[in-house]
Protein backbone atom coordinates (compact mmCIF):
# COMPACT_ATOMS: atom_id res chain seq x y z
CA UNK A 1 0.00 0.00 0.00
CA UNK A 2 1.32 3.44 -0.90
CA UNK A 3 1.90 6.11 1.71
CA UNK A 4 -0.95 8.21 0.38
CA UNK A 5 -3.37 5.29 0.59
CA UNK A 6 -2.29 4.78 4.15
CA UNK A 7 -3.11 8.44 4.84
CA UNK A 8 -6.57 7.94 3.37
CA UNK A 9 -7.13 4.94 5.58
CA UNK A 10 -5.90 6.88 8.62
CA UNK A 11 -8.25 9.78 7.86
CA UNK A 12 -11.19 7.36 7.84
CA UNK A 13 -10.09 5.64 11.05
CA UNK A 14 -9.79 9.05 12.70
CA UNK A 15 -13.11 10.23 11.26
CA UNK A 16 -11.68 13.26 9.49
CA UNK A 17 -14.10 13.59 6.60
CA UNK A 18 -12.48 16.62 4.94
CA UNK A 19 -9.02 15.10 5.08
CA UNK A 20 -10.33 11.78 3.80
CA UNK A 21 -11.86 13.45 0.74
CA UNK A 22 -8.65 15.36 0.15
CA UNK A 23 -6.59 12.17 0.35
CA UNK A 24 -9.02 10.33 -1.90
CA UNK A 25 -8.56 12.99 -4.55
CA UNK A 26 -4.80 12.78 -4.19
CA UNK A 27 -4.94 9.01 -4.53
CA UNK A 28 -7.05 9.18 -7.68
CA UNK A 29 -4.84 11.88 -9.16
CA UNK A 30 -1.84 9.69 -8.45
CA UNK A 31 -3.46 6.95 -10.54
CA UNK A 32 -4.43 4.56 -7.76
CA UNK A 33 -7.12 2.12 -8.86
CA UNK A 34 -10.57 2.72 -7.30
CA UNK A 35 -11.12 -0.97 -6.48
CA UNK A 36 -7.78 -1.13 -4.70
CA UNK A 37 -8.50 2.09 -2.81
CA UNK A 38 -11.81 0.64 -1.72
CA UNK A 39 -10.34 -2.53 -0.37
CA UNK A 40 -7.03 -1.40 1.08
CA UNK A 41 -7.85 2.08 2.38
CA UNK A 42 -11.57 2.73 2.66
CA UNK A 43 -12.91 -0.63 3.83
CA UNK A 44 -9.75 -1.28 5.82
CA UNK A 45 -10.24 2.07 7.53
CA UNK A 46 -13.82 1.53 8.64
CA UNK A 47 -12.99 -2.02 9.66
CA UNK A 48 -10.19 -0.76 11.87
CA UNK A 49 -12.60 1.72 13.48
CA UNK A 50 -14.98 -1.18 14.14
CA UNK A 51 -12.18 -3.21 15.64
CA UNK A 52 -11.20 -0.34 17.94
CA UNK A 53 -14.84 -0.05 18.98
CA UNK A 54 -14.93 -3.73 19.82
CA UNK A 55 -11.81 -3.31 21.94
CA UNK A 56 -13.27 -0.39 23.95
CA UNK A 57 -10.68 1.93 22.40
CA UNK A 58 -13.31 3.72 20.34
CA UNK A 59 -16.71 4.90 21.50
CA UNK A 60 -19.79 5.98 19.63
CA UNK A 61 -18.51 9.48 18.69
CA UNK A 62 -15.37 7.99 17.15
CA UNK A 63 -17.34 5.38 15.24
CA UNK A 64 -19.91 7.82 13.97
CA UNK A 65 -17.21 10.16 12.66
CA UNK A 66 -15.47 7.25 10.93
CA UNK A 67 -18.79 6.18 9.46
CA UNK A 68 -19.43 9.71 8.20
CA UNK A 69 -15.97 9.89 6.62
CA UNK A 70 -16.57 6.47 5.05
CA UNK A 71 -19.92 7.61 3.69
CA UNK A 72 -18.46 10.80 2.19
CA UNK A 73 -15.60 8.92 0.53
CA UNK A 74 -17.94 6.24 -0.80
CA UNK A 75 -20.17 8.90 -2.34
CA UNK A 76 -17.16 10.01 -4.43
CA UNK A 77 -15.60 6.65 -5.00
CA UNK A 78 -18.78 4.63 -5.67
CA UNK A 79 -19.44 5.90 -9.21
CA UNK A 80 -15.81 5.23 -10.12
CA UNK A 81 -16.16 1.58 -9.21
CA UNK A 82 -18.49 0.84 -12.12
CA UNK A 83 -17.01 -1.98 -14.12
CA UNK A 84 -14.48 -2.78 -11.44
CA UNK A 85 -14.43 -6.32 -10.13
CA UNK A 86 -15.96 -5.55 -6.74
CA UNK A 87 -17.68 -8.58 -5.29
CA UNK A 88 -20.92 -8.08 -3.37
CA UNK A 89 -21.81 -10.40 -0.53
CA UNK A 90 -25.46 -9.56 -0.97
CA UNK A 91 -27.99 -6.78 -1.08
CA UNK A 92 -29.53 -5.16 1.99
CA UNK A 93 -32.56 -2.88 1.97
CA UNK A 94 -32.68 -0.92 5.21
CA UNK A 95 -34.84 1.71 6.88
CA UNK A 96 -36.24 3.03 10.15
CA UNK A 97 -39.93 2.30 10.56
CA UNK A 98 -42.77 4.81 10.37
CA UNK A 99 -43.02 7.40 13.15
CA UNK A 100 -39.39 6.96 14.11
CA UNK A 101 -36.74 9.48 13.15
CA UNK A 102 -33.67 7.98 14.76
CA UNK A 103 -30.97 7.08 12.30
CA UNK A 104 -27.71 7.17 14.20
CA UNK A 105 -27.54 3.41 14.72
CA UNK A 106 -28.69 2.79 11.16
CA UNK A 107 -25.89 4.99 9.79
CA UNK A 108 -23.30 2.87 11.55
CA UNK A 109 -24.97 -0.35 10.45
CA UNK A 110 -24.89 0.87 6.84
CA UNK A 111 -21.20 1.75 7.08
CA UNK A 112 -20.33 -1.60 8.62
CA UNK A 113 -22.43 -3.60 6.15
CA UNK A 114 -20.96 -1.67 3.22
CA UNK A 115 -17.46 -2.25 4.46
CA UNK A 116 -18.24 -5.94 4.80
CA UNK A 117 -19.09 -6.07 1.10
CA UNK A 118 -22.85 -5.64 1.11
CA UNK A 119 -24.65 -3.41 -1.31
CA UNK A 120 -26.94 -1.32 0.89
CA UNK A 121 -30.04 0.60 -0.17
CA UNK A 122 -31.07 3.08 2.50
CA UNK A 123 -34.75 4.04 2.62
CA UNK A 124 -34.09 6.58 5.38
CA UNK A 125 -36.26 7.15 8.44
CA UNK A 126 -40.02 7.31 9.07
CA UNK A 127 -40.56 4.73 6.32
CA UNK A 128 -44.16 3.49 5.88
CA UNK A 129 -44.81 -0.24 5.57
CA UNK A 130 -46.00 0.25 1.98
CA UNK A 131 -42.59 1.58 1.00
CA UNK A 132 -40.77 -1.36 2.56
CA UNK A 133 -43.03 -3.74 0.63
CA UNK A 134 -42.80 -1.89 -2.68
CA UNK A 135 -39.01 -1.60 -2.51
CA UNK A 136 -38.62 -5.22 -1.46
CA UNK A 137 -40.56 -6.26 -4.54
CA UNK A 138 -38.62 -3.88 -6.75
CA UNK A 139 -35.07 -4.42 -5.51
CA UNK A 140 -35.37 -8.04 -4.38
CA UNK A 141 -32.82 -7.64 -1.58
CA UNK A 142 -31.32 -10.64 0.20
CA UNK A 143 -31.92 -8.97 3.54
CA UNK A 144 -34.50 -6.46 4.73
CA UNK A 145 -33.16 -4.47 7.69
CA UNK A 146 -35.71 -2.80 9.98
CA UNK A 147 -34.74 -0.34 12.70
CA UNK A 148 -36.87 1.11 15.50
CA UNK A 149 -35.77 3.14 18.49
CA UNK A 150 -39.02 3.60 20.42
CA UNK A 151 -41.11 0.90 22.07
CA UNK A 152 -44.19 2.31 20.38
CA UNK A 153 -42.75 2.22 16.85
CA UNK A 154 -41.00 -1.13 17.07
CA UNK A 155 -44.39 -2.80 16.78
CA UNK A 156 -44.59 -1.67 13.15
CA UNK A 157 -41.91 -4.27 12.45
CA UNK A 158 -44.45 -6.96 13.20
CA UNK A 159 -46.87 -5.38 10.68
CA UNK A 160 -44.20 -5.19 8.00
CA UNK A 161 -43.28 -8.85 8.41
CA UNK A 162 -46.95 -9.79 8.26
CA UNK A 163 -47.28 -7.72 5.09
CA UNK A 164 -44.40 -9.68 3.55
CA UNK A 165 -46.34 -12.85 4.34
CA UNK A 166 -49.58 -11.44 2.95
CA UNK A 167 -47.84 -10.38 -0.25
CA UNK A 168 -46.34 -13.85 -0.65
CA UNK A 169 -42.73 -12.65 -0.55
CA UNK A 170 -41.73 -13.54 2.99
CA UNK A 171 -39.66 -16.52 1.89
CA UNK A 172 -37.75 -14.42 -0.63
CA UNK A 173 -36.06 -12.16 1.90
CA UNK A 174 -34.41 -12.51 5.30
CA UNK A 175 -35.51 -9.98 7.88
CA UNK A 176 -32.94 -8.53 10.27
CA UNK A 177 -34.23 -6.19 13.02
CA UNK A 178 -32.46 -3.89 15.46
CA UNK A 179 -32.71 -0.79 17.65
CA UNK A 180 -32.54 0.09 21.32
CA UNK A 181 -35.88 -1.34 22.54
CA UNK A 182 -35.67 -4.54 20.47
CA UNK A 183 -34.30 -7.86 21.65
CA UNK A 184 -33.69 -11.41 20.47
CA UNK A 185 -36.96 -12.40 22.14
CA UNK A 186 -38.84 -9.66 20.33
CA UNK A 187 -37.26 -10.66 17.01
CA UNK A 188 -38.37 -14.26 17.54
CA UNK A 189 -41.83 -13.15 18.60
CA UNK A 190 -42.44 -11.15 15.41
CA UNK A 191 -40.87 -13.91 13.30
CA UNK A 192 -37.87 -11.96 12.10
CA UNK A 193 -34.91 -14.05 11.01
CA UNK A 194 -32.35 -12.35 13.23
CA UNK A 195 -31.71 -9.54 15.70
CA UNK A 196 -28.62 -7.32 15.57
CA UNK A 197 -27.67 -5.99 18.99
CA UNK A 198 -25.37 -3.41 17.43
CA UNK A 199 -23.77 -2.61 14.08
CA UNK A 200 -21.01 -5.20 14.33
CA UNK A 201 -23.47 -7.84 15.41
CA UNK A 202 -25.73 -6.89 12.49
CA UNK A 203 -22.89 -7.71 10.10
CA UNK A 204 -22.28 -11.05 11.81
CA UNK A 205 -25.98 -11.87 11.64
CA UNK A 206 -26.15 -10.84 7.97
CA UNK A 207 -23.22 -13.15 7.23
CA UNK A 208 -24.94 -15.99 9.05
CA UNK A 209 -28.25 -15.39 7.27
CA UNK A 210 -26.64 -15.57 3.86
CA UNK A 211 -24.44 -18.48 4.82
Amino acid sequence: MTEIMDELKKAIVEGDEDLALEKLEECLNAGEKPAELLEKAVVAGINEAGQLWQENEYFLPDVILSAEAFKAVMAELGPKLAGADVKSRGTVLIGTVEGDMHDLGKSIVIAMLSSAGYQVHDLGVDVPADTFIEKTKELKPDILGLGAYMSTTMEYMRDIIQRLVDEGIRNQVKVLVGGVPTSAEFAAEIKADAWGKDALDAVEKANQLLG
Partner: peptide, 14 residues
Amino acid sequence: MIYGKDAMPTIDFR
Protein backbone atom coordinates in the same frame (compact mmCIF):
# COMPACT_ATOMS: atom_id res chain seq x y z
CA MET B 1 -40.82 17.43 14.96
CA ILE B 2 -42.70 14.40 13.73
CA TYR B 3 -46.06 13.79 15.35
CA GLY B 4 -46.79 10.09 14.91
CA LYS B 5 -50.32 8.76 15.30
CA ASP B 6 -49.47 6.11 17.88
CA ALA B 7 -46.24 7.38 19.40
CA MET B 8 -44.87 10.32 21.28
CA PRO B 9 -43.63 13.30 19.27
CA THR B 10 -40.08 12.85 18.11
CA ILE B 11 -37.41 15.18 16.83
CA ASP B 12 -36.78 15.06 13.09
CA PHE B 13 -33.06 14.42 13.19
CA ARG B 14 -32.88 14.74 9.40
